[in-house]
């Protein structure tokens, strides 16, 4: 069975290591915070100006001055710090943030990513995504493998306007885990119950399938 959103978040959470500074994008990436491995310490960076982001507040304790980049009410943790938007993107640009996890509409076999614009339909803006992908040391993309019509979103080249070029290192889709290499997508793990055959058929970009592709353990 293909992974649901929570399954994708759980699998990505296993990529987060002790001591990392991590920026989580809107949507599935936000869910990753709920499934981080026990016993590790991670600092979440919210690009609107917070390091050390805590969970959502208890009902009645929400604070209009304290939100995340998705404009949701949040909390701080002991050791949290606030800063302005220039410093926030300064630490991103200077690669102080170890891992960026974000969603995508398309990823190319060269690691290009498109996630901010559908011409004529959706023009909401790139927010901080272009800054994040241009500078991040390590980018993991959380995405659905195919669109609603069944067309692959892992492509030879993106068809939508790009957010960044040659930057994605790893993809966790509902069908599996993929490394993005100079030679194309490499299938690393299959989602539980999903066959290699199904993944091959659902992937339009160049896909390298090793002899042994283990099933994911979540």
């Amino acid at each position: 069975m293909a992974l649901d959103k929570i399954g994708i978040a759980k699998r990505i959470a296993r990529e987060v290591k002790d001591g990392m500074y991590v920026n989580l994008g809107i949507g599935i990436p936000t869910l990753v915070a709920n499934y981080l491995p026990q016993g590790i310490e991670v600092e979440l960076q919210s690009e609107n100006g917070l390091l050390g982001m805590g969970p959502f507040p208890w009902d009645g304790e929400e604070d209009a001055d304290l939100i995340n980049a998705g404009k949701q009410t949040i909390t701080t943790l002991p050791g949290s710090v606030f800063f302005d938007s220039a410093m926030s993107f300064g630490m991103i640009r200077a690669q102080k943030v170890d891992l960026t996890i974000l969603g995508a509409m398309e990823v190319s076999e060269r690691g290009d990513i498109a996630n901010w614009k559908v011409p004529g339909k959706m023009v909401k803006g790139m927010g901080g995504a272009m800054d994040l992908v241009a500078s991040a040391k390590n980018i993991i993309v959380a995405m659905q493998h195919c669109d609603k019509a069944g067309n692959s979103k892992l492509l030879p080249a993106c068809t939508l306007p790009l957010t960044g070029v040659g930057c994605v290192k790893k993809i966790v889709s509902d069908l599996g885990v993929f490394d993005v290499t100079p030679d194309g997508f490499v299938l690393v793990e299959r989602a539980p119950g999903v066959s290699v055959e199904e993944i091959v058929q659902s992937t339009k970009g160049k896909l390298i399938v090793p002899n042994d592709v283990p099933e994911m353990v979540i």
């Binding site: 929400e62 939100i67 949701q72």
Partner: peptide
Amino acid sequence: EKRIEQRTVRTR
């Protein structure tokens, strides 16, 4: 007014 755009809370 300090309006909240996305009120997101944990419920007890």
